[in-house]
Amino acid sequence: MVKDTLIMSRKPLQEQVEQALAEIVREALATQQTVQVPGLGVFRIERRPARRRPVKEGGAEFIPPRNEILFTPRT
């Protein structure tokens, strides 16, 4: 009974931690920062610059830049 009560009380806090973790990771990546989650891995942003890509019909198109999310798992 006591154990169940403890589990019940910890559940919302665990959800809150998960939510806070998501917020921290999102905020860090949005500002191009690297964030390390202990035991899981490292999230970082790599910028892919704009480029010119040839198209089959002739000519080319200008592809705008983008940010890519990279994850390196902890080994």
Partner: peptide, 28 residues
């Protein structure tokens, strides 16, 4: 190891500076 597939929302947030930028066709 683990592979990670980001949520569409997260990818959208990190690409906010480039939001709505289409590919521009360059004339041959």
């Amino acid at each position: 190891g683990l592979i990670f597939e980001p949520d569409a929302g997260l990818a959208e947030i990190v690409n906010a500076p480039f939001a709505g930028l289409p590919a521009i066709p360059l004339a041959a």
